[in-house]
Design a protein around this nucleic acid. Structure first.
Lengths: 418, 418
DNA sequence: ACTCTTTGTTGGGGCAACGCCCAAACTAAG
DNA sequence: CTTAGTTTGGGCGTTGCCCCAACAAAGAGT
């Protein structure tokens, strides 16, 4: 039996919905399992070849698929592989951080088409001005996509702070110095409403980027994102857990050491006071050490730490060990609650993770109730600091995979002249 | 647009699926919003009256609905309310605990039809024997339901321990002294396979019981279940979060006080060492106090604690305060990670919760990043210690609401003679 | 050249929702 | 008491979309 919806939507299912669902199913299957012929697609999905033929031809009309190369099998008529059309639609992700705004456009296949970044100091500028700069970047990106003949299906923006998705307002953005800013509303009015604009927490989007659709080992994961603060996201059954207001994933302010160090949030013993980048730097270097100079770029600091660790500098290794222990302690708390298949370390954790990993794994084993049978893997992200924008772009594209009919039908263009 | 499935099921949607989905939708709507006429049902679901008529008549043939009383409206023809038929199908929930096995049968409306309980000492008996006793209870319940003309649609069993749902094995049951026991397989072969048998963690089922279907304020909740150990469950978007192996919700072994008290699991500083029932009893009473005598029944101990608290006994109040503080600290950790709309206290927390609540709320406010905007309510469960069996029975019934066609069609019985 | 195998398309049939119509049942007037 | 007005619930034909069966297309092997 095919498992139909248990969503909250309390509307009846009609025939167009069946079509939508099956179009999306075929599209997602090709994304998750790669190009293949109509016949194998039909076999995979348990549908007839005729049905798949009509689905594929509709998706081609909507320019989401293209006929690929002819594949010679051992016997029988050769098959024409169908594959995702990367050139027609793109999703845009964006990020608003203390020292920059940036955008990234991904095509249907997940390949980067465009990337833009503007350095600025969000603290010294008005929120409206910063959002104006971001809107400029987005407009440039959209124009660039138009030139290539690609249409934009959506924009998803990650902000550093607590974003209330029920009210569409950034309620607390201490790093940016923004409070109660209706980011979504402002951007929508600024951009003119030609495509949907969604705003979410940065850590949540970074977590979404780590989900490999179709990989069963990546459906229940916990993403820990380390910078000065520590955040992340929870993915359960392939879906991001947002919580009732969208505030889920604020791991940095779990109190792991009652009465411990003073945190910037005003409390004591928050996890990020012992596992954030500041804790590492203070343990690893004296105050006059260049890596503690705020002027030094983040990438350079981390490269320097890796260099020292590689040279077996005792103090650096000890600092990484100590932070790793705390990361593992916090990870174990969350693993007991969530039982993820993997914990993915991103942000600065990914950069210096090779030297922290064993400590994290040790503490995780020590702190999890059933380490042998519930075994949680520790993995390092390869996405780097662009995880949030990538996750945003992926999220924008997700709506197309859920409902391909939102992309307009066009006459099949036979060899368009460029 | 109606939101169709994004489930992992990678099979195509066919017409019978549409029917299944709409039958389930109508059935759930009547469960969640109460009896109503076909016409209002059609209006609510955005379907035509004729469609709803056929859906309802099919559900009546399957004996899931019945025509209710005629309702006189202000004008026009009076409507016949349709309502859930409580007499035809029942789901059974069961529980395996240290000192008892028990069952509960619920009808479609969620009303208790049958309840059985057998006291035993699981530690001193062989697992197969205990499961045999449980199977007896289940058989008795089924026979009793048969007599009433109700059929059993499923059995869901909660066990105290880590139940690996991917392998269908209870891997760790320290309280029961059970390790690697294939509970599901044993029960299925014992019961003969006339209905599906599912096994899950006790805390997860108790959490499932707290979800009020249709209540938007109960879709993202965190359930904390206190006994000697502390467990619970996470409900996100109305669905239970199970994690990759089904081990999610083991909150009791989160380490909240590194280097703290020794726990039965071998580690130090586990949350249940400071928030479990043992911690409360040890703080509230001397070793020779009757409430610390293991022979005393749990309910009686809690009643005595409530009595003393009501008389303003200083030591009792202080103990409740201290435990409440620790419950709040742990709750805050989880609330930062999960951002639930409500935290529901069950088990012994619910019994003595009136005297702990203010401490819990205070610490929760103190430990959550944005208490004002993300406001998490603290609620006391009213289900008592039967939450797990009730949740099991509810889970068994859930399959009917998801796919009503699994219940066989019968000829419409006109006024059956009893 | 002929058969065998696999692919992709075409036409007919059936299921299920939709739209429209009508009998039924009751209220509110005249 | 009759008549108009309103709402309910079911029957009939239409439409959308998937399934089944048959068939043309395109090679590989003999």
């Amino acid at each position: 039996m095919t498992n139909l919806t248990q969503t909250l939507s309390d509307q009846g299912v009609t025939h167009p919905d069946v079509r939508r669902s099956n179009l999306g199913l075929a599209l997602r299957h090709l994304r998750d399992h790669g190009p293949r012929s109509r016949a194998t697609l039909a076999a995979d999905l348990g549908m007839t070849r005729s049905t798949v033929s009509t689905l594929v031809s509709e998706l081609i009309e909507r320019r989401l698929l293209t006929d690929g190369p002819l594949v010679q099998n051992a016997v029988g008529r050769p098959s024409t592989a169908v594959e995702l059309d990367g050139r027609s639609v793109c999703g845009i992700g964006a990020e608003i951080n203390v020292n920059h705004v940036s955008t990234m456009a991904l095509d249907l296949r997940g390949d980067v088409v465009e990337e833009r970044k503007l350095a600025l100091d969000a603290r010294s500028l008005d929120a409206a001005l910063v959002l104006g700069h971001l809107a400029d970047l987005v407009r440039e990106t959209v124009a660039c996509l138009d030139e290539r003949g690609a249409s934009t299906v959506g924009l998803t923006v990650g902000v550093a702070g607590l974003y209330d998705q029920t009210r569409d307002v950034l309620t607390h953005g201490p790093n940016l110095g923004w409070y109660d800013v209706p980011v979504g509303t402002i951007l929508r009015s600024d951009l003119g409403g030609t495509f949907p604009v969604v705003v979410d927490n940065e850590g949540n989007l970074a977590a979404a980027a780590e989900v490999s659709p179709g990989d069963p080992g990546r459906q229940d994961i916990l993403v820990l994102h380390g910078e000065i603060g520590v955040g992340g996201g929870i993915v359960s059954g392939g879906r991001l857990l947002r919580g009732s207001h969208g505030y889920a994933g604020e791991f940095g302010h779990m109190i792991v050491e009652p009465g411990g160090r003073q945190c910037g949030c005003g409390r004591q013993g928050c996890w990020e006071t012992v596992s954030g980048l500041r804790a590492l730097l203070e343990m690893a270097a004296d105050p006059d050490d260049p890596i503690r100079n705020p002027a030094m770029a983040l990438d350079d600091r981390l490269a320097e730490i890796n260099r020292r660790a590689h040279l077996s500098d005792a103090r650096t290794l000890q600092a990484l060990e100590d932070v790793g222990v705390w990361v593992g302690i916090g990870a174990a708390i969350l693993a007991n609650a969530l039982n993820p298949a993997a914990i993915v370390l991103t942000g600065y954790y990914a950069a210096v993770g090779h030297h922290m990993r064993s400590a994290v794994e040790r503490e995780l084993r020590a702190g999890v109730l059933a380490p042998d049978s519930g075994g949680t893997r520790v993995e390092l992200s390869t996405l780097g600091f662009s995880a949030a924008v990538r996750g945003g772009a992926t999220a924008s594209l997700e709506s197309v995979f859920a409902d391909p009919t939102q992309v307009p039908r066009r006459a099949a263009v036979a060899g368009a002249v460029v």
